[in-house]
Every structure is written in structure tokens, then in C-alpha cells.
Simulated scan of single mutants.
Amino acid sequence: MKIEVLVDIKTTLGEGPQWDVEQQRLYWVDSMDGRILRCTAEGSELRGWEVGQKIGSMALRKHGDHALVAMENGIHDLDLGNGDLQLIIDPEPGMTTNRLNDGKVDRHGRFLVGSMDMQEEKGSGKLFRLDPDLSLHVLEEDIICSNGPCWSPDGKIFYFADTWTGEIWAYDYDNASGKVSNRRTFAKVDTSGGGAADGATVDAEGCVWQALVYDSKLIRYTPDGEVDRVIEMPVRKVTSVAFGGPDMDVLYVTSMGKPPLPRFPGDGQQRGSLFAITGLGIRGVPERRFAS
């Protein structure tokens, strides 16, 4: 196994890596600085888009060179060709202390995205599902900080975390309707080192990979919620993970250059970098595009 800095760009809050199989490109965001970034598997051909607001997450769309962008004041369409933004829907109008955070597309092209209290104290957030017809549905409420949405390879189990509960949850997921049910605790997060559950993904073996932000660790959980592997990273504030590369066997890891609140710890010289881990012998599951 080898861990290396792929792009030394010092994102304030790097998040949401996702590999697009069609373009063979990696996308990720700088949440606090309002940027979407893209590079090749080797970290070259870096390109960025400025959107002028905090970003929680993004997802490429099926048709045209467009992306969904979950921002402070709603979900927008971004034309990647000319940079134009158009509001699709604001799930929480008037909620000035909330913003949208982590989001991902399910196996049938729906976008699930959660909101968060920007002080990470109140349970004012929700989990939403945006369908391809652009209708919006509330799936979960009373969330402090939405994080880590991902699915089992067959799409029948949905994983999600409210960062400060110390748990990762699993739900039964209805692929036909996009409804969730039967929430249970999938895993207890080891917070003894000051860490908390952040971004996550699922590999082809059905194991869940989760970034333990503020504690330098990536955790691999088996499908039954047992810790299978722990990888120590060279920075404390690892934020999210995604498999990609031509063979889907590279684990890309985003990190945070500056904590969003003063109570959170600082970090070393490599803070904010995009990392690549090779030699794991594990492949990921390709991410879907939003189906409209």
C-alpha cells in the first residue's frame, strides 16, 4: 500500500470526491471556498469552477455537460461549459443557520443530500431526496451534520451518518421508490481520539470505507459493521473517500486545510491536499450520474 499527495492544492475544506467513469476524471469540492475541482487519475489537467457560495456536494447529470450542486441556498444546476448557475430548488428557505452538505446519487439516478447546522450544534438538518423529475422528498429529520451517504453494491442498503451521534446508520432502501425504512445502528464510531464520522463510500465487496475526521484515520467496516482495517493518514482532518482510476482500484482521499470552527484542531503541512492510496487490492463501485 502507498499513500501519496496527488494534488497539493490546500483546499480550505476538501470534500466529496467522485470518479466519473465516462470522462475518466476525478471531481471534488472545496466546500468553504465555493470551488469545484477536477483532475485526471494522475492528478494532472487540474480545472476549477467558482460558484460563489459554500458547497456541500455535487453530482454530474446524465444529459449534457451539467452538474447538480448542493449549495448554501439550495440545489443548483451548473453548466460546466460556461459556468452558469440556475436554482432548481431551495429545500430550506429562510434557514440561514443551515446549509446543504454531503450528497450522492443512488443506483437509479436520484440525488440524496443532507443539510446541517453550520455551528454543528442543533438538530436542524434533514435528509432529502431529489428525484429525476426534480420533485423533493424528506427522508430523515433532526440531523446536526449530514454525512457519508452511500449504498451497498446492490443498492438495497443505504448508509448515512449524523456526524456527532457517534454512529453510522443503515437503512433498508427501496430501489423502486427511493424510500428508506428500518433504520438501525450499523457501526459505533470510535471517537476516543477526537474523531467523528465524515464522508464514506462502499467497495465492490460491500465494505464501507469511512473517513474519521480530526483523527487521521480511514476505517473499513465489513457488511456486518465490524472494523476490518484502519489506515493512518498523514493529516488529521481527512474528510471523504472515493474509489476511482481506470481500474477503480485507487482510493482518493480529500482533506481539510482549515477547520470551519475554532474548536476543531489544526494540522500539518500536507493539510488540504488530495491524496491517492494505491496497492489496496480492492476495487470500488462506479458512481451514478443524476438521471436527468
Rank of each mutant, 00 (worst) to 15 (best):
227 V>Q: 13
213 V>E: 08
120 E>S: 07
73 N>E: 14
191 T>R: 12
69 V>W: 04
32 M>T: 13
291 A>H: 08
285 V>L: 12
47 R>D: 06
52 G>T: 05
177 S>H: 13
252 Y>D: 08
222 T>L: 04
118 M>P: 00
160 F>W: 12
272 G>Y: 10
67 A>E: 01
41 A>W: 13
267 D>G: 09
171 Y>Q: 06
139 L>C: 03
270 Q>V: 07
83 G>Q: 10
152 S>G: 04
224 D>A: 06
257 G>K: 07
92 E>S: 01
130 L>E: 04
179 K>T: 14
162 D>T: 01
174 D>K: 05
95 M>S: 10
33 D>Q: 14
243 F>G: 09
192 S>C: 08
37 L>F: 11
207 C>K: 11
235 V>Q: 08
94 G>F: 01
176 A>M: 11
81 G>E: 14
153 P>T: 06
284 G>H: 12
129 R>Q: 09
192 S>I: 09
244 G>I: 05
149 P>I: 08
105 V>N: 01
266 G>S: 15
26 L>S: 10
232 E>V: 13
10 K>Y: 10
172 D>G: 03
214 Y>H: 13
290 F>C: 02
257 G>E: 07
22 E>H: 14
25 R>N: 03
247 D>F: 13
34 G>P: 01
185 T>V: 15
119 Q>N: 12
6 L>K: 02
261 L>V: 03
280 L>R: 10
182 N>F: 02
42 E>N: 11
151 W>T: 03
28 W>L: 03
195 G>I: 05
107 R>V: 05
274 L>C: 08
86 Q>T: 15
131 D>T: 10
117 D>Y: 00
291 A>D: 13
263 R>L: 06
181 S>K: 13
258 K>E: 12
69 V>L: 04
35 R>Q: 13
170 A>G: 13
14 G>P: 04
131 D>S: 15
102 D>V: 07
37 L>C: 08
237 K>P: 00
223 P>N: 03
74 G>Y: 06
71 M>E: 06
48 G>W: 03
170 A>S: 15
58 M>A: 03
286 P>E: 05
178 G>V: 07
269 Q>E: 15
61 R>Y: 00
187 A>M: 09
73 N>R: 14
187 A>S: 14
274 L>E: 11
38 R>G: 02
36 I>D: 01
143 I>Q: 04
280 L>Q: 11
250 V>I: 15
38 R>H: 00
35 R>N: 07
54 K>Q: 12
200 A>R: 05
242 A>C: 14
62 K>S: 13
147 N>H: 12
4 E>H: 08
135 S>F: 08
18 Q>E: 12
35 R>G: 00
111 F>D: 02
72 E>D: 14
255 S>R: 04
99 R>C: 01
56 G>E: 05
89 I>Y: 01
274 L>I: 10
274 L>V: 12
76 H>E: 11
268 G>A: 15
33 D>S: 14
51 V>G: 03
172 D>P: 03
24 Q>G: 11
40 T>V: 01
48 G>M: 06
258 K>V: 13
234 P>C: 09
90 D>Y: 04
225 G>Y: 07
194 G>L: 11
279 G>T: 14
137 H>W: 09
173 Y>I: 04
118 M>T: 14
171 Y>D: 06
176 A>Q: 15
74 G>W: 07
132 P>Y: 07
218 L>M: 09
33 D>Y: 00
20 D>W: 11
61 R>M: 15
55 I>L: 01
64 G>M: 10
35 R>A: 02
63 H>Y: 13
22 E>C: 08
241 V>G: 02
136 L>V: 04
286 P>M: 05
